[in-house]
């Protein structure tokens, strides 16, 4: 909780967990497509993107554990926390629903994270974060291109694909505001020069989404109130189900390794 952020060290740890959790949860969502993708080519693309995000999360958890210095490993962060301790944004935990929802969620996220990592490479005072960011920048740049191309083709596609795309926009757009919301912990990490200020990325995000939507013949919805809560550990109903599956092996067989 925000009030519980006591020291600068706690704040940095918490801020890094926010982006690590985003990667873990969205990576897990993409992995749920395994065996269900509409075509083999997309099956591989979704798994590839999921693995990119999982790789980013692992590096961030390991870094968080080292900064904390209490011996917590990436597995402890990924598998052994309670739901309220996950601080991912709500967007990434939204269910896959259909291919339109999945690709739009990916577009919203990648359109934010690609410039986010790009700025981190340029400006972060933390060498490890710069290293993680350099790799993640390239990965998210691919996610952005791939999801953008699909959103355009589905939005400007058949009657059914256009309807599903419009449905996805109506459902998911309200979760994009949280990408730019800054928790007290994040504010400290920004002030310390570790992470970029999301506000400085807003114009680029708006421009990317507007460009894709124009080509996709999609309309930007007017959202009065953006959804929030994930950064405070307050998640939607789907999150518990996701964690049950994500954590099952480590909960049932503690310490299990491959």
């Amino acid at each position: 909780m925000a009030a519980a952020v006591a020291s600068a060290e706690d704040a940095v740890l918490r801020a890094i967990l926010e982006i690590a959790d985003d990667g873990l949860i969205l990576g897990h969502r993409l992995s749920e497509w395994c065996g269900h993708a509409p075509m083999l080519e997309e099956e591989l693309a979704l798994a590839n993107m999921g693995l990119d995000l999982l790789g980013q999360a692992r590096a961030l958890y390991a870094h968080a554990g080292a900064l904390e210095g209490k011996g917590r490993t990436e597995d402890d962060f990924a598998f052994l926390r309670r739901e309220r301790d996950y601080v991912n944004c709500l967007l990434v935990e939204r269910d896959n629903r259909d291919f339109a929802h999945t690709m739009l969620r990916q577009l919203y996220f990648a359109a934010f994270m690609q410039p986010f990592w790009h700025a981190t490479v340029q400006t972060s005072s933390d060498e490890t974060l710069r290293g993680i960011a350099a790799k993640a920048d390239k990965e998210m740049s691919y996610h952005l291109r791939h999801s953008g191309e699909w959103v355009i083709r589905m939005g400007d596609g058949t009657e059914e694909s256009a309807a599903r795309m419009a449905d996805a926009v109506n459902e998911l757009h309200r979760y994009t505001g949280e990408l730019f919301m800054v928790s007290p912990a994040r504010q400290q990490a920004i002030a310390a020069g570790l992470l970029p200020d999301p506000e400085s990325l807003r114009d680029e995000w708006d421009e990317t989404i507007a460009t894709v939507f124009r080509a996709a013949k999609l309309e930007l919805p007017e959202i009065r109130t953006m959804q929030k809560g994930g950064r405070d550990g307050i998640h939607g109903e789907d999150m518990g189900h996701l964690l049950a599956e994500l954590q099952f092996m480590q909960r049932a067989y503690p310490g299990q390794t491959w």
Binding site: E41, L44, A45, N48, E149, R153
Partner: peptide, 20 residues
């Protein structure tokens, strides 16, 4: 070979299927 709607998506799929 692979299935794709157009050349842009074919290139992306080729990247995912054949350059892993």
């Amino acid at each position: 070979s692979l299935h794709a709607a157009d050349s842009a998506l074919a290139l992306q799929s080729a990247r995912d299927v054949y350059t892993r």
